[in-house]
Amino acid sequence: MVAHAIANRVVVYYQTQYRNGVYVSPLPLIGYVTHLLLAAFHLNMGHTGPDIVHLNDFQPSDPFFAPMWPDIAALQGNGTKVIGMLGGAAPGTYDCLVDSLFDTYYPPLRDVIETYKLDGMDLDVEQSVSPATITRLILELKADFGEDFLITLAPVASALTEGGNLSGFDYIDLEANIGPHISWYNAQFYSGFGTIFPKDQYDRIINYEQGIDPSRVTAIVLTNPSNGFGYVSPENVVASIQDLMEEYGTGWGGVGGWEFFNSLPDDSRPEQWAITMKNAMQVQKAKIEAKQREIEAREAQERSAVRSRMFQRSAREN
Rank of each mutant, 00 (worst) to 15 (best):
A143E: 12
A40D: 09
F261V: 09
S130N: 03
L137D: 01
G228E: 09
V53N: 03
V232K: 04
N20M: 09
L37H: 12
K278Q: 14
G46P: 01
Q284K: 15
S25Q: 06
L27E: 13
F311A: 14
A305T: 00
A280H: 05
R303H: 12
T195R: 07
N165F: 10
T195S: 15
I205N: 04
W252G: 00
N78I: 00
T34P: 01
W252K: 02
V156N: 09
F169E: 03
S100E: 07
Y23L: 05
H54G: 02
R19Q: 13
K285I: 00
G249F: 04
M68W: 05
V232C: 09
N224A: 10
W273F: 14
L174Y: 06
I212W: 06
G84P: 01
P63D: 12
I212T: 02
K278W: 08
M121P: 00
T152Q: 08
Q201D: 11
S268Q: 14
D119F: 02
I182V: 10
R204M: 11
V11W: 08
G179W: 04
R307F: 07
M245V: 01
P155F: 04
I178M: 07
W258H: 12
S100W: 02
S268C: 06
F197C: 06
I182K: 02
P108R: 07
D95N: 13
R216M: 07
R216A: 05
Y106E: 03
V2H: 14
M310Q: 15
T135C: 10
S240R: 02
Q59T: 12
G211Q: 10
A297M: 10
E140K: 15
